[in-house]
Amino acid sequence: MELLEGEREEIIKQVGEVMEKYQSDREKLLPVLQEVQGRLGYLPLLAMEKVAEAMDIPTVDVYGMTTFYNQFRLNPPGEHEIKVCMGTACYMVGGQIAMDSFERRLEINEGETTADRKYSLERVACVGCCTLAPVVVVNEMVEGHVTPTRVDGLLLSLDGEQKEGAAEAGTADEPSSDEQPVEAEGKHDREGEQSK
């Protein structure tokens, strides 16, 4: 993913601070990466390069660590982070169905972020709320018993928040105009079926 303006400087600054704190100790590579991700939200390639440089190790060693451990993400998180639980209990009662619905609605695959960086979608193993299965964690809030219609509702309410925010800032609300043609198209299809 392309870096946005000003991100480059921010990454260099944050990595520098973390490396100073841990004194570039090789044994502390995992905590270092955790803290960098904690500050930036993800681990951009540039950050990995800077960490490797400071520790005087090949960048591929750092890349190996970030791809080995599930905790690290290489894509920036969306404004709204959606995590679909795929623990055993959730899987059994339709976790995959919830995941499919999000993928369909957001038009991204699991592990990706929408191009406008509004939503990111991840799968997680057991959040320990098996009695509420299937579970989805939206911005740290646990939502239980998630069906496809609930997915629609969740996304609508998140869009709504966004619209309110946009209205306050005095800008036009783009998302709603995007939504409408899809709706209309769908209805059209159904009428078509009926006449058959």
Partner: peptide
């Protein structure tokens, strides 16, 4: 069922009963 379908796969037949367009159905259980 018509309202619940996320992909508009359910339609009303000529006789008023509902049916599922298998091509469109994503098997979401809704």
């Amino acid at each position: 069922c018509v309202g619940s379908c996320p992909t508009e796969a359910i339609y009303t037949r000529d006789d008023g009963l509902k049916a599922i367009d298998q091509e469109k159905c994503v098997k979401c259980d809704n």
